[in-house]
Amino acid sequence: MEFVPNIIGFACHWCTYAGADLAGSLRLKYPPTIKLIRVPCSGRIEPEYILDALAKGADGVLVGGCHFGDCHYKDGNYKTARRMLQLEEMIKEMGLEPERFRWEWISGSEGQKFAQVVTEFTETIKKLGPSPLKGGN
């Protein structure tokens, strides 16, 4: 049976989630591998949620927020950047493939980009295979 990646996505309401909606309106195709969780701002995303998702067996985690200067709350996404930079290093140190975690700036008008990112990410995860953290209890 072919491996179908299970990807968790955290998307900010004002930009990335709107971008995902737009991808839908434009009938753009992308793999149904991503499960989106909407948050008010990417700055709301605790690294803990990402680690929790990976620990629960997610094959990949995607984080999406507004471009710098576009954040509805002014500087939430700056904090996101400063956290995610550390998190990607930490995931590597903990022995998990760093390619399983990806973070992007995707605005509300970038439906195309959203579909593209999800498609690429799914391919990456397919090549990596299922997460080594599945199973246990």
């Binding site: 903990m94 199973g135 209890n137």
Partner: peptide, 11 residues
């Protein structure tokens, strides 16, 4: 930590 616990539980 979260990831470590899971790694040990799986292994």
């Amino acid at each position: 930590s979260l990831l470590e616990r899971k790694r040990k539980a799986v292994k």
